[in-house]
Amino acid sequence: MKIILRVGLFFMICSCAMMPNKPEKINGVSFVASRDSINDTHIKPLLNIHANYAAIMPFGFIRELSHPEIMFNTNRQWFGETKVGVKQYVESLKKHHISIMIKPQIWVRRGEFTGGIKMTSEADWKVLEVSYSQFILEYAKVAQEVKAEIFCVGTELETFIDNRPEYWKQLISEIRKVYKGKLTYAANWNEYDRTPFWEQLDYIGMDAYFPVSDEQTPTVEACRKGWLKHKPTIKAFSEKYNKPILFAEYGYRSVDFAGKEPWRSDRDMNALNLEAQTNTMQVLFEEFWDEPWFAGGFVWKWFHNHEKSGGLYDDRFTPQNKPVEALIQAQYSKY
């Protein structure tokens, strides 16, 4: 009897050893700041989709694209956009073993694209540099305090970076002095190949709004063909720097032509199409999540009040309470 048990145990151990290791991926959500604190009720839907990471996004505000001063952590902001709110969100999420990326972002009045931030004088560039350093270093210290696993040094700031590359390299050195975790930058999909400081970071971060299909309802086949224009270049870029690719944001709206210009958030783009959102997302998962050079990503975007978010008549990015949520749940459960 003992011999039989030992033989059985031997084969069980061998079988386990022969099973492939389950790859570890960042299965993240971009957790939108709100007026309120969060609790277990708000976190349970993340656990239901098997999310293991959340991006927490405090905001700084600029009056216009040429204005050099950033306002942040004020009593006029929503709770989740401030230092106190960030800490409360992180502490609540970490209780449920959800890891954190802190991703401070700039909001330009009227929602203008942050990549267009550009000063009109050297004096204003200097003011912007001082102001941005204050903003980003303040939250780098918060990230260290709450033991956030990843810190994002900026999001879609291509013109700022193009014009002041040495400032950015020095800023990253300053961030390293106060924050000891992993660093990334969220480059826009058409910006990453000229970002000059990837050597200083741990992940090559991309906001993955790559155009993949011009079809009204993009088919899986069309989206897969569309990725052939981008994926080999992304892989080669990872190999060039020997760093993993992280989709700091990824996602599609539930509208017609969802794969044509996925970055668009125009309110007049409102022809509801849930299938378009599901097909584009399915192919993104199939093309990237199994790649060894791909770290994972953060779906754009996830609201704290799950029951009232998204839904079958919502045409925005959020996957909540739409067919694509089940797709994300199935995907995230694998890793």
Score class of each variant (00 low, 15 high):
107 W>V: 15
94 K>C: 01
176 R>G: 08
6 R>C: 12
80 G>Y: 07
196 P>V: 06
101 M>V: 08
188 N>S: 13
32 V>R: 09
40 D>P: 10
121 S>G: 03
57 M>S: 09
269 M>G: 06
38 I>A: 07
181 G>K: 02
245 I>W: 12
30 S>F: 10
229 K>A: 10
62 I>G: 02
40 D>W: 03
224 R>I: 10
161 I>S: 06
59 F>N: 04
293 W>S: 06
322 K>I: 00
129 E>L: 07
17 A>D: 09
290 D>V: 05
318 T>Y: 06
303 F>V: 06
202 D>H: 13
57 M>P: 09
20 P>R: 04
36 D>I: 10
77 Q>F: 06
313 Y>W: 12
185 Y>G: 03
307 E>Q: 14
136 I>R: 04
52 N>I: 09
219 T>W: 08
177 K>D: 09
32 V>Q: 14
272 L>D: 03
157 L>H: 06
47 L>V: 07
196 P>C: 12
268 D>G: 03
326 A>K: 15
311 G>E: 02
84 V>N: 13
123 A>Q: 14
10 F>C: 09
83 K>E: 15
74 T>M: 05
21 N>M: 14
273 N>H: 11
304 H>N: 13
240 K>W: 10
62 I>F: 08
236 A>L: 02
217 T>E: 06
297 G>F: 12
212 V>M: 09
5 L>Y: 13
174 E>P: 02
237 F>I: 01
58 P>F: 08
254 S>A: 09
167 Y>V: 01
168 W>D: 05
183 L>Q: 01
326 A>Y: 11
53 Y>C: 02
299 V>M: 07
231 K>V: 12
107 W>E: 14
231 K>L: 15
102 I>F: 12
39 N>V: 04
277 Q>G: 02
8 G>W: 08
109 R>I: 03
